[in-house]
Design a binder for these strands. Sequence first.
DNA 1: GTCTATAGTGCGATAGAC
DNA 2: GTCTATCGCACTATAGAC
Lengths: 188, 188
Amino acid sequence: MARWQPGTRERLQQVSLELFGERGFDAVTVAEIAQRAQVTERTFYRYFADKREVLFDGQDTLVHAFVAGVGEAPAGLSPLELAAAALDRAADFFADERRSWSRARQSVIENDPALQERELLKLAALSAALSCALQERGVSNQRAGLAADLAVSVFRISFVRWIAAGEQQSMRELQRDVLETLQALTSS
Amino acid sequence: MARWQPGTRERLQQVSLELFGERGFDAVTVAEIAQRAQVTERTFYRYFADKREVLFDGQDTLVHAFVAGVGEAPAGLSPLELAAAALDRAADFFADERRSWSRARQSVIENDPALQERELLKLAALSAALSCALQERGVSNQRAGLAADLAVSVFRISFVRWIAAGEQQSMRELQRDVLETLQALTSS
DNA sequence: GTCTATAGTGCGATAGAC
DNA sequence: GTCTATCGCACTATAGAC
């Protein structure tokens, strides 16, 4: 008999999302999560830095996608075109099967300010990484910061639409649409 | 002898910024702040919802300025011009005398992720309020969200420049400059 | 794996302002 | 008297230290 089951991390994440969905983030204690996942409280904190972090694991793969999108884009693109390439690349993460899971997760986040704070920090980190990648492609500091913020804004607004009830369009389509709106907005 | 001195709130804010600056946000306890301000820990929490909030009091006046800037702008402006009006209006808050205080505060925030999270939440609230104000001026939901994010991004980037060592330009000038850069970025 | 500091909450008591 | 600021204390949960 194994002393511990494999997949502890995944179990903790799944159990957390379930409990948060049922009673809200605040009303659930780490002790409860640990108990349901058959580990001790201490083990939870071995995997996740704090209680909120359990919902934000795996964000670095998204960051990598954005950065890779910029790094692999052809030469001669404008900052905005580089940002668009990053968005296109990141869209792969949002397959249709993930929609309902994303919806559940986002609904939990929207109901707790502490989780919103953490999400915003992750998006800020994404923007910072993207800005860095753009600067490596020769974009000036200020332009890179602006373009990165722009891309993250497009991403966030598209994501909200993507998980809206009844939405059929893919993340890639939505992002392109929002980006077009953005360009129309600033050219007028 | 009065049981309590007037200006408790201001005293708590001042003492907090001092202590955070000396030893960092995390190394200072609410008990210490309260003691130095001659009140009990419980009183601190009467004024501020949590330990971080003591550094973010008065942000709503900034939000009001942005919203007022949109509300009072002349008719017929584009979403981006409305956003520019809001930025111009908000610039009044950043008089030269406040530069060193802003610098001290920002330095504390930059050294603690928890404070960065709170700052991002406040900026998100600003964006949401701005988006709302834009929609009341007839801008569509999606355009309003984008324009609001844009304005907040311009604000944030300008603010960083405004508190940079040796910077002489006013917040208004910096914001206009960044906004120009933004337009150049999206029109190409 | 236990022990502890600290954040943050709930509620009743109290002192002064009006 | 009422109202409001403050206190005091008991309590839970997070999170980090040993």
